[in-house]
Structure formats: structure tokens, C-alpha cells
Amino acid sequence: MKTLSLGLLLPTSTILPISKDFERGVKDGFNTHSQIIEIEIIKEFIGQGGAKQAEDASGRFFNYHDVDVVSGVLSHKVADDLAEQFKKRKIPFIVNDLGGHIPQVDKLNDYTYLNSLHLWRHAWSIGKWGVETFGKKGMYISAVYDSGYAFSQMFHEGMMAADPRAEWSFSVCPMPDAGNLSDMSVIFPFMEEYQPDFIFATFCGAETTLFLNECIARGWHKRTNIIGLPFITEPLGPLHADVTVYSTIAAQNAEMIVPERSFYYLGYETGAMLAKAAAKGGDLNTQLQELYKGLRLVGQEQALKYDESYEVIMTRNSIKAGDTGKHSEVISTLPVFTMEMQSMKSLVNDIHFGWMNPYLCI
């Protein structure tokens, strides 16, 4: 194999240059680890990453482009429904996502690979750490876009792991009119009523700025503790007072993954793995099976294995009034949810989260 033909499923986003970052990462990862094999990239754009767009694009990779392997950025909930098609055609399928949803492990197969930041595990760690650090009363606060993932569920699971007597409430902003930001005012009557020890807020960008400034106006930045996922302060506009925000960050092999470079990182990992597998020669999928360290089924008993070098780090971010930057310091490495077959299955039983979009969870 002197040329590897790679089909890329690429979504369209106005939030971040997701597809460009991912494609650049794939190229850099592949070229860094390959001197003798070239990569041919064939792109199919899948809009917001819905099931129909991804299925149609995959069909073109099967029936027209005749690629060796398919990758891209899409929710693994969409990939779940495509996995059997790739297995049937014996084409490797490398799925890259941030991990807003809990993987449905019984849909894993020998041809599907999940390269993910597993943000759902961050939510579990946040719930557990919040109870152990600040108190038993937590609150989940979100925009509609970010709430259609597994974050509230895993926040609950993490809180219960810390203390079965812990309790939590929630408030979600209504869907805004097209082109507008969420109305933050609806959140605060619920906060006043509940008086949380800490909140888990899944906002990002302009909505984080809007939310924090509303907290400042109402004095809540001094009355509770604000925790978020890696993207909560990426990017951030000027605030009206000094604020402290706690946030998680992913780390692999002790190297922290900068949030705004997440899709480049995922692409780089995909490209590097493909280069190493292709260089070994022989059947590409067989080589990928040997190199892949992510979530997978192994052995006749179909036990779950995953890369245990992945860590969730908690940081304290100090933000000065009027600044768009922050001073971050690492507080600790957090315990993470253990991915065991029965516990993973129980998490997804009878639970259906709505968003198929692979990037709204930032």
C-alpha cells in the first residue's frame, strides 16, 4: 500500500473551524508518522452531522469513491447506526467526537473505532468533586443546545457516587429566537429558590459571558461555586467584575489538551494511528486493531478495554474584570467513571438524548 485513501465526514459549524482543524490534524498526524505512504483525502460534508447526511455520504464512500478507511467528526450516536454497514463491507470506521453522549457499548464492533474526549465522564467527575468540595446541593444550568446530551445524567451519577444523600436541581434556558442568545434571566429565580452550594453550567463562548455577567449583576458570583466543562471559558468576553470559574480539562499521557485545539488533537491522533497501521502492511483493519487503545471489546467474554492514560484535570480559572483572558491553575486530577460492561449498559437503558449534532456540546 503506497497510497491510503481516506474518506472524511466533515460537519459545518459557525462555532469553531471544526472541519478545518480536524483535517489539518489528520494530515499532520499522518505525515509526521509516515515517510513511504501517501494519504489521499476525499471529503464529504454532512451539514450538522445528522444521521441521513452521514448515511448518504458513507454510501458514496462505499459505492463510488472506493476508500480504504472512513473517519470524520460525528456523534457516535449517529455512528452507532452506521457501524454494521462498515463491518459488512470490512471498511474501518474511525469516529471522532467530544463525547457528549454515553457510548452504547453493545454496538461496538471490530471495524468501528471511537476516538473521543468522553466529556460525559467529565460531568461525572464534576458531580463527585462538587459534592466532596462544596456541599450536597448541586444545580445543573444550561442552554437548550447543551442540555440535550448526557451531562445532567452523569452529573447526577457523580453526585450520588460522592454521597447518596446529595441532591440537585436544574434550570434550562428556553430556546432563543433565531440569531439570538439564550435569555439568562429565567435561571435566577430557580437559583434563588434552591440556593445551590455549587452549579454545573454547560455554556460556552458568548453565552458564558452573558451568564457570568448576569451572575455578577445579581451577586451570585460570590454566593456559589461555578464549574464547567473545558469549553466554558473558550472564548470569553469582558466581565463586569472579578470571577472564579472551575473547569475540567482533558489530559492524555500527562499532556493537557487545549480546548480550542480539541478537533486538531482528535485529527492528529487519527492520522498518526492510520500512518502506523498502513506502514505495517497487510490488512489495514488488523493493524488498527493492534494499535487502537480506545474503548473496545476484547476476548470471547467481550470485556471492555480503554486507554487508562486519559485523565480529567480540575482547574481554577481566575478572571479579572474587563479582561478576556484568565489565570489558570491545576487543582487536582479527578477520579473518573470506570467503563465496565454492565455499568455502561445500565446507563443507556431506556434513555434517549435528542441531539445528534457532534459539536453543540461545546
Rank of each mutant, 00 (worst) to 15 (best):
M1S: 15
L4E: 11
G7Q: 02
L8P: 12
L9Y: 00
T12W: 04
T12C: 06
S13C: 05
E23V: 13
E38A: 14
F45D: 04
G49D: 02
A57V: 07
A57G: 00
S58V: 04
N63T: 09
V67L: 05
G72I: 03
V73S: 04
K77I: 11
V78C: 06
D80P: 10
L82W: 02
K88Q: 14
D97R: 06
H101M: 10
K107H: 14
T112Q: 07
Y113P: 06
Y113A: 06
L117D: 10
A123W: 03
F134G: 04
K137P: 02
K137L: 03
A143M: 12
V144T: 12
Q153I: 15
D163G: 07
P164E: 08
A166S: 15
E167T: 15
F170A: 12
N180E: 11
S185K: 11
F188C: 04
Q195V: 09
T202R: 00
L210P: 05
A217P: 06
A217T: 07
I226D: 01
P230G: 09
F231Q: 08
L236E: 02
L236P: 00
D242P: 01
T244Q: 06
Y246A: 00
S247V: 01
T270Q: 00
G271H: 05
G281P: 03
G282T: 07
G282Y: 04
N285P: 10
E290W: 02
E290D: 11
Y292N: 01
Q302A: 15
Q302E: 15
Y310T: 07
T315W: 10
T324H: 05
T324K: 12
T333M: 06
P335F: 00
T338E: 15
K345Y: 02
D350T: 07
I351M: 08
H352F: 11
L360T: 07
C361E: 13
I362A: 00
